[in-house]
């Protein structure tokens, strides 16, 4: 348990904005940039913006979640960190669980905060903003899980980062459908489904990512 805490502290030091190896505030700026550009592209029709803005925020969040994937696993894999951890009895799965928590903490809370100015830029109502926030809260753990698994799978490949981006998109579609779907049917069912998908993905991702790291050793 204390090993896991030590691991999590290191992962947070790496990934949190201002940390040593993460994407920093880049996903946040990307997210805000999309919210800012969208009204320029579709014109200042307040009704149209209010109706479609929630979906735009979801798409922006999904794409922003791809940005940190490049350095999420590959650096440590190359440096042999997972080998040293394995010799110390820390399995790849535990290492990936810690990385998943740190990855989510590094991008999701900031994204939720940035949703407020983004909602203002798109002219969303208070109620819609609330639904988007709750949806993102239940959906981003799933996005982080998909991202981690894909980052681990592509970590040992040349040009893996670009491939990771492409692989995340189809896998994240269920989260997008149910998460953004809460906007069309504003009751709890969509939120619960999104949260359920997230939970399932969070349970599977460390196992898949751990297996990917082990497989990378054999290549």
């Amino acid at each position: 348990m204390s090993a896991l805490a030590t691991l999590l502290r290191r992962d947070l030091g790496l990934l949190l904005p201002g940390g040593r190896g993460g994407a920093g505030v880049l996903p946040l700026l990307f997210f805000l940039a999309v919210a800012m550009l969208y009204p320029f592209a579709v014109g200042p029709d307040a009704q149209l913006l209010a109706r479609t803005g929630g979906g735009v925020i979801w798409v922006a969040a999904l794409l922003a979640a791809i940005l940190p994937l490049e350095k999420l696993v590959s650096g440590d894999l190359e440096a042999g960190v997972f080998d040293q951890l394995a010799l110390r009895g820390v399995s790849e799965e535990w290492a990936m669980l810690s990385r998943l928590v740190a990855h989510w903490l590094a991008f999701a809370p900031l994204l939720l905060v940035a949703t407020l100015p983004a909602a203002a830029l798109l002219g969303l109502s208070g109620e819609t903003t609330r639904i988007v926030l709750l949806g993102l809260l239940s959906g981003t753990p799933g996005l982080a899980a998909v991202g981690l698994a894909v980052a681990a799978l592509t970590a040992s490949l040349k040009g893996g980062a670009a491939l990771a981006g492409l692989m995340v998109i189809p896998l994240a579609v269920p989260i997008l459908i149910f998460g953004a779907g809460t906007l069309a049917r504003p009751d709890a069912s969509g939120l619960l489904l999104t949260a359920a998908i997230s939970l399932g993905l969070c349970a599977l991702a460390p196992l898949a990512a751990g297996a990917a790291i082990k497989a990378a050793r054999e290549s």
């Binding site: 040593r20 190896g21 440096a79 042999g80």
Partner: peptide
């Protein structure tokens, strides 16, 4: 194990990078 791979954080001072393993 000591091999050709360092497994230390490149951007940290050596003392802090090693401290991670001392704790483990």
């Amino acid at each position: 194990l000591v091999d050709e791979r360092l497994a230390l954080d490149q951007n940290l001072p050596l003392g802090k990078a090693l401290a991670f393993y001392e704790k483990l």
